[in-house]
Amino acid sequence: MVDKTLELFDCGHRACGGCGAALAARLVTKAAGTNTIVVSATGCMEVFSTPYPETAWKVPWIHSLFENASAVASGVEASLKKQGRTEKVVIMAGDGATFDIGMICISGAFERGHDFTYICYDNEAYMNTGIQRSGATPYDASTTTSPAGKCSFGNKRPKKDIPQIIAAHGAPYVATASIAYPADLMQKVEKAINTVGPCYIQVHAPCCTGWGFEGEQTIAVAKLAIETGLWVNYEMVDGKVVKAKKVVRKPVEEYLKTQKRFRHLFKPTRQDAEIATIQAIADRNAEKYAIDIKLKKE
């Protein structure tokens, strides 16, 4: 057991007030403990935690490029193994780094079977460069490269199912988590770190700046994603879903209404067809992962 009272991601970092990714970094390092080496991909977390000569990390940390964190981690892990050392390797990468540009290095590393834990903090766009859409951006979200306007309701493509793709590589442990459920998130990190082989955890980390809500709402927004079924927290062991968080589902608009990136679905006029399409995504999630708690009729 690691000492969870330690702060291994320290004060003084330059994330926006209320940043979900910063909280993710704190919780993940807490759960991972001091015997950890972190490898970061380029992105908000890397930039806000290490403007030279400062660093918020209190464990060894390395950054090379946007696309190659899993290749760097592979090298670190192979070297530790050769030296007979016991440090655990944890990758911290954004959704852009994971879903898009890092995919080739990720696929290679998972195929080679390195013993590391890959954490994707998912804020659903390229935040650090000004909110461009990524493969993780949800349907109809307005970003600077999928702007809502006269000709468009925003991002036209559904979110890529990366956990499934990683599981298809034969990863022994794949999970999704959320900063709104810190105990669950930390438990999953511990489980991944103590599982031999390449493991993957995708952490929902709302971004107040990119999604358009007040920083104080970060946890509330993350909770609504779960409560509406637009984000499902689950665990996969050897490719099979073994557990998923059940909820009494709320309509998706309760989540959508909290964020400016979906504002065009309500103003100037309510877009019922678009909202219904998003509701159908949540309904499919609910069915696929069997998350609905059926309330008994009195």
């Binding site: 004060c11 003084g12 704190r26 920083g215 104080e216």
Partner: peptide
């Protein structure tokens, strides 16, 4: 839940943030 990790318990047993680092995001209050 504080993204800064700046909230702690004092020796007197009260919970308080470190105002040197607290950004005032409001998550704790919310």
């Amino acid at each position: 839940l504080c993204p800064e990790g700046c909230v702690h318990e004092t020796e007197e047993g009260f919970i308080t943030p470190d105002y040197t680092y607290c950004k005032g995001c409001g998550i704790c209050a919310q």
